[in-house]
């Protein structure tokens, strides 16, 4: 019964949020619409990371690679092929997922820190190729003025496209986390040895999980192309990977919406603090240090814990 009530409430929150986000362009100016779109894209990226990190317990240290690969694959399809314009938004995620499979096949043999480090090595290799291959990827300049389809090239068009796709992906990720696969994935996070003992092929589940996360990372990358109209190698640099790890941690990595909240906080900080000072990473670093010391469950995790303990106390009184 309790579970059903929780879900009804979350459903209500989700619908309210969606409606609010849907009417936003009628009240805000271009800049804020752009910023909201960027938060949604980054939030989707962080959520896709958290699927394997918070729910799968995998040390996915270089998730930004899939974001970058998705963005580049989408942009290159739009620029260099005669395929119908929207094909780029399918090619992006699919190529990201394919890279995920290849990296996964190499990485999942290892566990924890070694897994994360090998992933950084492979990701840096991808980055280095993109960074140098001027004739194809534009090298360190990146590619600018990507011909995004007309319907979604205006700021409002890009915003609604981003909102719809992000909402759709969030629903899918939510379903996956709460599916039998998601349940087993969490079991593996808690205890890989026991999972093997109950007949679960741990490595294969991790490979599937990583591929799915890479796919959604690629979706986020394609959306970035829509919002920005350009791609550059920084999209797959390892520092971005650590930044999205911070977003997960900041929002609460054992909660579903935590990474989205974390992305909102980080992207807003980056934008607004960046207006007043060029030392925003200093502030970011200090926030992170405080966070690790005082709020290791993250902002949303902290409030949910408060909330559920109050609720438990209330039901105990009855």
């Amino acid at each position: 019964m309790f579970a059903a009530a929780i879900n009804k409430r979350s459903f209500g929150i989700a619908v309210t949020l969606l409606v609010l986000l849907g009417v936003l362009p009628f009240f805000l100016d271009r800049f804020y619409i752009y910023l909201t779109a960027l938060i949604l894209v980054t939030g989707l990226l962080a959520t896709s990371l958290n699927m394997v990190l918070g729910y799968g317990g995998m040390y996915q240290f270089h998730h930004a690679v899939f974001y970058g690969v998705g963005a580049y694959a989408c942009a290159l399809t739009l620029i260099k092929t005669d395929l119908p314009p929207y094909a780029g938004f399918i090619v992006g995620p699919v190529v990201a997922a394919a890279v995920g499979v290849i990296m996964g096949l190499i990485c999942v043999r290892l566990s924890k820190l070694y897994f994360g480090m090998l992933q950084i090595a492979l990701g840096s290799l991808v980055w280095a190729i993109v960074y140098r291959w001027y004739s194809f990827t534009g090298g360190d300049d990146g590619l600018h003025g990507v011909p995004v389809p007309d319907l979604i090239s205006s700021i409002n068009g890009a915003y609604y496209f981003t909102l719809i796709i992000t909402a759709l992906c969030m629903v899918l990720i939510y379903l996956i986390i709460n599916s039998p696969f998601g349940r087993i994935f969490q079991a593996i996070r808690d205890n890989p040895e026991r999972s093997e003992t109950i007949g679960v092929n741990v490595k294969r589940h991790q490979l599937v999980g990583l591929t799915i996360a890479a796919f959604f990372g690629g979706v986020a990358g394609s959306l970035f192309v829509t919002v920005e109209g350009s791609v550059f190698p920084d999209l797959m640099f390892w520092t971005l990977s650590l930044e999205i790890l911070i977003m997960c941690l900041l929002g609460g990595w054992f909660t579903f919406l935590g990474p989205m909240v974390g992305a909102g906080i980080v992207v807003s900080l980056q934008t607004f603090v960046g207006m007043y000072t060029e030392y925003w990473t200093l502030i970011m670093g200090i926030i992170l240090i405080l966070l690790i010391f005082f709020l290791p469950e993250g902002v949303l995790g902290f409030f949910l814990e408060r909330f559920s303990s109050r609720e438990q106390a209330m039901s105990a009184e009855k």
Partner: peptide, 12 residues
Amino acid sequence: KTYKLFSPARNQ
């Protein structure tokens, strides 16, 4: 059923 991706686990 460990690879079922989209049906809610609470019904399984």
